[in-house]
Every structure is written in C-alpha cells, then in structure tokens.
C-alpha cells in the first residue's frame, strides 16, 4: 500500500472538495468559523474511516444489487453515533453545526469513498483512504473557513481561541458581513478551487521541468 500516494491524492490531486466536488453542502454551509471547520472536518473524517472499514470488511457479504442501501444504513449508524456523542460532549459544536451533522449521512464524500474505494479494497487500505480523504476534506474546509471568517467577521479562530471570540484582525466596523452569509460561501469556495487548480498546474509544470 502506498501511503504517500494516497495522502497526496487526498490532500491535493484528488481532494474531495476542490477536485471531486463532493460534500459541497456542508462545505458551503458551515465554514463560517475555524471551530466549525475543524469540528465538521473531524466528524466527517471519523465517519469516513469507520464506514470505510466496516464496508470494506463486509464487501464480500453485501449483494451488489442492494449495496447502496446497505452502505447508507451503515453510514447512518455511524453518523447517529457521532451526532449523539457531539450532543453529549461538545454541545457548543452540535448547536453550531445543527442539522448538518445528521446530513453527513447524505454527504456524497462518505458514500463516494464507500462505493469508489472501500467496496474494492482491503480493510487497512480503506482505513488509510478514509483518513487521507478526511484530512483533505478538513484542510479544504479550514482554508475556506479562515478566509470567510477573516473577511466576514474580521477575526481568526472564532469559537476556539481567545475565549470563543477569536483574535480580532480587522476592526469590528470594517468586515463585509456578506462573506459569512451564503454569498460568501459560494464566492470563497470558487476562489479556493481556482487556487487549487492553479497550484496543481504549477506543480505539474515544475515536475515536468524537473524530468527534463
């Protein structure tokens, strides 16, 4: 198993958010503060790892006609576990993410990894794949969060640093409120994806020059 390749794929070349465009709903909706981004990223990562492991272990048992229904049931089970744990131990995060925690069930990234990877590969490889894709998802989320929070509320690390207020970088009267509203989600994610495409092109070019 090629851990480095899988990691690279999850983080950049096959990043679930910026390249495969999976799980966009949560990416757009909750990326308003660093706390949300990290929390959502970790929740999705844990669920992807768990469901990948279980689905990969059961891949020879589940008949292929009903596999999607079986996958969704398995994923829904893990989402319920994470949802209840968050409500019990991190009520602030559960409150802030709201309906988007149960909606992880229909996050296409989790189902996409189940169908695209876990159903064809071994348990260990699937766990690593879940971890790498989860990290890629979290990184994309955190980048979007940081930009949106900085432009929209003028702070960094809201809900996490400085007693939940975040560190103020832009004075309170200047930030553009729109950036933490839906508009900002679409615009910032558009620019983040454009940025990652430009970065990949640049790396590609550099690699080719290196080969020469």
């Amino acid at each position: 198993m090629n851990f480095k390749k899988q990691f690279n794929e999850g983080l950049l070349t096959k990043n679930p958010v910026t390249v495969q465009l999976l799980g966009m709903c949560s990416t757009l909706a909750i990326t308003t503060s660093l706390f949300n981004g990290i929390g959502m990223g970790l929740a999705v990562t844990i669920i992807t790892i768990c469901s990948n492991v279980l689905i990969s272990a059961l891949r020879k048992v589940i008949p292929s006609q009903v596999r999607i229904a079986a996958y969704i049931t398995i994923i829904a089970g893990f989402v319920t576990v994470v949802d209840l744990c968050l409500q019990a131990f991190l009520p602030a995060l559960a409150e802030s993410l709201g309906v988007f925690i149960p909606l992880i069930v229909v996050n296409c990234m989790v189902l996409g990894r189940a169908e695209g990877f876990a159903s064809k590969n071994g348990v260990l490889a699937s766990a690593v794949d879940g971890l790498c894709q989860g990290i890629g998802y979290t990184v994309a989320l955190v980048i979007t969060c940081v930009i949106r929070e900085l432009l929209g509320s003028g702070t960094f690390g809201g809900g996490l640093l400085n007693g939940g207020e975040g560190i103020r970088i832009i004075p309170a009267q200047f930030p553009a409120m729109q950036m933490v509203m839906p508009v900002g989600g679409f615009l910032v994610l558009g620019f983040v994806i454009a940025g990652s495409q430009a970065l990949m092109k640049y790396l590609d070019k550099k690699k080719k020059e290196g080969v020469k």
């Binding site: 508009v183 900002g184 679409f186 615009l187 994610l189 558009g190 620019f191 454009a194």
Partner: peptide
C-alpha cells in the same frame, strides 16, 4: 470555480 462564483 466560475460556476460557483455565478451561484454566489
């Protein structure tokens, strides 16, 4: 990206 900005 341009589709997302349009949606924005």
């Amino acid at each position: 990206p341009i589709a997302l900005i349009t949606a924005g």
